[in-house]
Amino acid sequence: MADGSAIAAGRVPATAGQPRTGTLKRMARRRSTLAFLMALPLLAVIAGLVIYPFFYAIELSMLNKRMTRFVGIDNFTFLLGRETFQLVIFQSVLFAVTAVIAKALIGFVLAHVLHALPAKGQRKWRGMLLVPWVIPPAVSTLAWWWLFDPSYSAFNWMLAVFGAGPVPWLGDAGWARFAVILVNTWYGAPFFMIMYLAALKSVPDQLYEAAAIDGATGIQKLRYVTLPMMRNIISITVLFSLIVTFANFDIVRILTNGGPQDRTHLFGTYAFQVGIQSGDIPLGAAVSLFMFPLLAVFAVLILRGVNQRTKEGL
């Protein structure tokens, strides 16, 4: 930050000092100084609230609980040896992978279904299907929580009508995991739907006509026309959703708060419990930082996908 503005400040008198070096050059310089100044608030946000906290997190994660002593990587090794944390790693991966697959499949099917509708009715249906994604998850999860309530569950009432026994939605580890994945799928599927719908609309009709003339069946059209055309957007959406789902907080925090017996904790909720609620800031920072390598890999892959897409001009 500091030397950045020093460069900018250094530039202005330099251009003012030699007014006859050529107007074009001077204009270009003034332009780039102005450009830098206009981007300065953005730089301040990124540097002050993303890059600095990131390095601060690394520093924090290497201190002892009272933040008085440097302990190196002790927090990380301590976490890795702890059974609860091993569960957190497993659960985060399980949660992210299953939820993203479910969201992608539902989104893909719904996008196709919507695409098949006449244009007039499409908007109305799309609007209704977007509702889960529009309601803030912290708010809609309250409704799910109530639907899963141990004694008043409206789902269990419906199951009882069909003669099935009550399901311990949030009380049993397996069902609780299913419940958080279900709610996340419910919330995220509409996002996939609109992304895929936009991609479907951009596939030229001539390709399908050509395929139809060649006698392609519906499945062949899907396999050889739709999927190759959508490959890039599918991979970008899936990777993006993997990041967001992997780092989820709201749904698990409200629905189960990590329970029963820590069987639904994710990195985010566990870091919150350890760092904020139990007051062990360094350990909490270490939990969060464990997400970083995976997130970084996904981010680089997304960036590659986006750049490729820009190059192809799609």
């Binding site: 993303v50 906290p53 924090l60 904020i276 800031i281 920072a285 969060s288 997400m291 981010a299």
Partner: peptide, 20 residues
Amino acid sequence: GVFLTYLVPETLLFIPLFQI
């Protein structure tokens, strides 16, 4: 960098931000 920052989830940095 702007695009990469967009991919940083809030759960990654909330503890240092808490301290700040």
